[in-house]
Design a protein around this nucleic acid. Structure first.
Lengths: 230, 230
DNA sequence: CGCGCGCTTGAAGTTTTTCAATTAGGGTGG
DNA sequence: CCACCCTAATTGAAAAACTTCAAGCGCGCG
């Protein structure tokens, strides 16, 4: 643990690189790098080949799909503790999406070839990456499902609540968030047109769930933002 | 190949159990079983623990999610050649969905413990299962995406076209399918209410894309059912 | 201070849902 | 083989939700 590169990480206990026999730890350490990204920086591009496996250590990433016609849409967010780029790694194909930082962020990186070497020595690592992939599948199915069972308003409320919980700060009598993305991205995430998103936000304000102004969102400091009744 | 249990399978070249060193082949063979299911038979139940990894060899499976309130909804179909039950296998958890046969079907089964033994000897097998998982993730994302970019009518047309291609038979001047599931299931698959589905089918008939009566669907024998222009 | 882009607002139109009532199909038993 | 029955499917009408297009506003940056 002492010399494990993830040893001091807040997500160490859930790390895919842990546990590892000592010989593999040194192999890992040699090829383990951290990278800081400013908001807007791109971690990997759509269509580029898989060069690494990344673990989000701090910040927030947008996973986007770029249409052939130049349109781009935000598919999902990657929060700290999540692995990204594993899909291309597991399939041995190029990235089908691009990942960019939405706020100052940090990723821990293990090169593709090095990762495969670690896995050769410790196949349990592959099993853990596969488990993350299955988690991703579950999430994706949940979203597909909630698209059909939960109203757009409630889904927006959940999304903003989650963002606020993760990145907001406590102010007097409320919890305050500076939105790390434009409205268009929020609209993509819940799957509606930007105009509809704007109206949904207004409704949530009218319902007293939150206050919004520009990029500032405030949840009244109930013990915790409720998941919107009805 | 001669004594590989998948050796005669139509999907052999893509089998997750192949290639395999000879010693692993014999380990696999000992614990490999085929199972025939009648339409309506359940392969595994939601909440049951993962006892095997299954490969659909013939027929069609419905992967359903049962709500706590007794409602059930069809999440996806599994066609021949697909692996099912891998999610629970990879996560080491119980099944979060149930799988049941929609028509007379056959699955090839490898017990959970045996599968892990094969993997221990041949980690490449795990990599192949993980790849299938990543494929599943891609599919799921495609559906999420197409939900927002393709009209419900076109998505229905694609679905029926795919079913007809896989399970239909050629009649004079058309390709004919007997639907292996009720309308409610079709509605679940494209994510609309059953009444809407009924109206979408009517529209497709009016457009001349297909003819439908009860469970019989006919696509006029254009070279192949096109994926709906427009 | 002004300009521009992103966001909001309004109004009209489309699509889907919902509820309720009717019809059709497929299987069963006479 | 036919009549019947039950469930599944269809249809209709009204309401809800969302989209689209167009115009106006305002925040933030230079």
């Amino acid at each position: 643990m002492s010399d494990h590169p993830c040893g001091n990480c807040r997500f160490y206990t859930d790390s895919i690189w842990q546990p590892l026999p000592a010989c593999s730890v040194s192999l890992l350490s040699k090829n383990f790098t951290r990278r800081e990204l400013a908001a807007g920086d791109t971690l990997y591009h759509q269509g580029s080949e898989c060069r690494s496996v990344y673990c989000v250590s701090r910040g927030l990433f947008a996973i986007r799909s770029l249409g052939p016609d130049g349109t781009s849409s935000l598919l999902r967010l990657a929060y700290p503790g999540e692995i990204i780029g594993y899909r291309a790694f597991l399939k041995g194909s190029e990235h089908s999406t691009e990942a960019s930082a939405l706020m100052p962020s940090r990723v821990c990186t293990v090169g593709e070839r090095d990762a495969r070497n670690v896995i050769r020595a410790s196949p349990a690592v592959l099993a853990r990456i596969a488990k993350r992939c299955a988690d991703g599948l579950d999430q994706c199915r949940d979203r597909l499902r909630s698209r059909e069972t939960v109203s757009n308003k409630d889904r927006l409320s959940e999304l903003l609540g989650r963002l606020t919980e993760a990145f907001g700060e406590d102010a007097e009598d409320c919890r305050r968030l500076r939105l790390p993305m434009p409205r268009q991205d929020l609209a993509d995430l819940i799957g509606v047109a930007p105009e509809t998103l704007s109206r949904l936000v207004s409704q949530l304000e009218r319902d007293g769930v939150l206050r919004a102004s520009g990029r500032r969102i405030e949840f009244p400091a109930a013990p915790r933002p409720k998941v919107a009744r009805r």
